[in-house]
Nucleic acid binder design. Structure first.
Lengths: 341, 341
DNA sequence: ACACAATATGCAAACGTTTGCATGAATTTA
DNA sequence: TAAATTCATGCAAACGTTTGCATATTGTGT
């Protein structure tokens, strides 16, 4: 069992001090070009690579950030992680991921793992069960910067990357009004989750602004905005004596589900009922008719989260107490709201 | 600027040796229950957590595995990663992810990063550009175990987690034959990628076994099996004087695309043309008619990859030179091949 | 009461790298 | 040519934890 070659081995081989080797590899100005050359060659020859754990230990810097998401296989999160990795990679940081699987117990345990100085900062999207933030307080006290995204703690000051759900929903609803919808319904998510509440509020505000009455019969909240729940709600809306002619859905799955239910009942989309979704999932441009939806720019959220976090990690004096970045959304208009007049 | 509390701080507070503290926290049998109690309490009081970098350094164990995927936001990979994380988490390992973005240059640079003793093992899905494996050889020489999944090096001995693409395609095609298809076409992927070649071979073998002639006009290879390419190929098949009555597609995107093209041209699915996809993407159970497809069990692949890797990391004597695990696939029959007779 | 075993704790080195300071050689300046 | 400056390298401590071995204390059997 041979030991890995170390700085000292290299030093011995070259009759130099370990410190010289270290500096040579760092391209330190105080080392002569010839020595650097020699060191580099020998390192190549012996297949030497720095032990980055020893380095991290000595420098007290790991160049690693932690990411906690409910689930990696949800497309939105995989896009965010992709953005985080992209920015982090270019900034020389590694990304360690954890899934809370929406369990506050597991989320708490993960924060414990992350306390151990392993990550220099943490990016989090809260799980559905999470209603207190003590476990993050601990990280705060250890001066480990945190950035929340998407599902952020509402009543807790922190770094956050968000979109304006209220405004996005408002615009989406207004779009339905502009194309001539008169009775507009809503398929919403759990109102205990901030973002879904905001979307509902934005929906309501748009109706109010344009003098539309609020018909409670047209509004349904689901537990988790699943494809199946979407179908159930759509059927209810369909069977109303006075059914809607436009629906704003809080995500794309329920929107797609609704489209299919209506189509099966020979209701023409968009002319009889127009549909708007939320998130710009891949399926939104596959379903026929293509779905009008809000692009929430998940990749960019990830980039922004990593940028903010790394800035805070590297900041010399921490003057900034917290920062909230709002990413622009965009309504992508597709066939599901393109009425032929 | 206060220093983090260390083992030594704790030791001083309690008038114990650092070694005692360390062992107490490890629940070492040689330490009395009372001392353990005291240590635990004090640790809690001072908010002490071990510096895991120092620990990793000393023990020469990082409990971290690296994962290289082409892109995280591809659903298949996000599922695999989810499986990897799930297994690793339960085994006490952390997962650090990297995207090669199908660039061999970036892939190589990532392997350099992973050489530094940071990860104890690496799980990889090769990028499309990758045609040589020297950059992995380096990791091999450093005794860092590797596990490849999905896109694995064909002419290179290594640990691999795969599915039997040949057999899966064979069965999928046979299914089309069994339901009565007489002219069966294929929408395939790049034949320079092993898995897509295998699927094509399996397709051919099924035809041969059942005495069907190979009609080259019914077989089309795409560059990246995209939704858009699927539509192009489907149109070509549609316009043949003698069009197919069944199609085996090497992924679900092209299958869905084909379904839509045929439907727009008033061809009934499954009765006039039956379609089978590959991968069991979420969209396969949303598209109407629901798509018959091969479940490749991506999550389980991830679990298996992590299991194999961690076993190799922890193995005392390394007797096993390499290991190939084949995960079972399953044909999920849905409406797109359920013909009414 | 003695040797001996068992139990609990301490000592000190080690892991590989980095870094402030010291040292010596070579070069420039007065 | 002596002093000052620059340049290149070396020395040694430090980072926080772990671990083999040593030591001290208590308990057991004869």
């Amino acid at each position: 069992m041979k030991r890995r070659t170390t700085l000292k081995d290299l030093a011995k081989e070259l009759n130099l001090a370990a410190s010289t080797i270290s500096r040579a590899l760092d391209d330190h100005p105080g080392i002569s070009p010839e020595t650097k050359e020699k060191v580099l060659n020998k390192a190549e020859e012996l297949g030497f690579t720095r032990n980055s754990i020893a380095s991290s230990f000595r420098k007290n810097k790991t160049l690693t950030i932690g990411v906690i998401v409910p689930r990696i296989d949800i497309h939105f999160h995989s896009l965010v992680i992709s953005g985080i990795e992209e920015f982090a990679y270019k900034a020389g940081y590694n990304v360690t991921i954890f899934q809370s699987r929406d369990s506050i117990k597991r989320e708490t345990k993960i924060t414990k793992i992350l306390q151990n100085k392993m990550s220099e900062g943490v990016i989090i999207c809260l799980g559905t069960e999470t209603d207190s933030y003590e476990h993050f307080e601990k990280l705060n006290r250890l001066k480990i910067p945190l950035v929340f995204y998407d599902r952020v703690p509402s009543d807790y000051e922190a770094n956050k990357i968000i979109i304006n759900d209220y405004e996005s929903a408002f615009k989406a609803t207004e779009h339905l009004i502009e194309i001539g919808c008169k009775r507009i319904g809503h398929i919403g998510g759990s109102q205990s989750t901030g973002i879904f509440k905001d979307r509902y509020e934005g929906f309501k505000a748009a109706l109010t602004k344009h003098g539309f009455p609020m018909d409670k019969k047209l509004v349904h909240f689901t537990r988790e905005l699943s494809y199946e729940e979407g179908a159930l709600v759509a059927k209810k809306l369909l069977n109303l004596e006075n059914r809607p002619d436009g629906i704003f859905c809080s995500n794309d799955y329920t929107a797609v589900s609704a489209i299919q239910v209506f189509q099966k009942n020979n209701i023409k989309i968009p002319n009889e009922i127009s549909i708007v979704g939320f998130s710009n999932y891949p399926i939104s441009k596959i379903i026929e008719p293509h779905l009008t939806t809000v692009n929430d720019r998940a990749f960019e959220m990830g980039m922004a989260a990593a940028r903010l976090l790394i800035r805070q990690i590297e900041e010399e004096e921490d003057i900034i107490q917290s920062e909230i970045v709002t990413i622009k959304t965009e309504l992508i208009v597709r066939e599901s709201t393109m009425r032929s007049s």
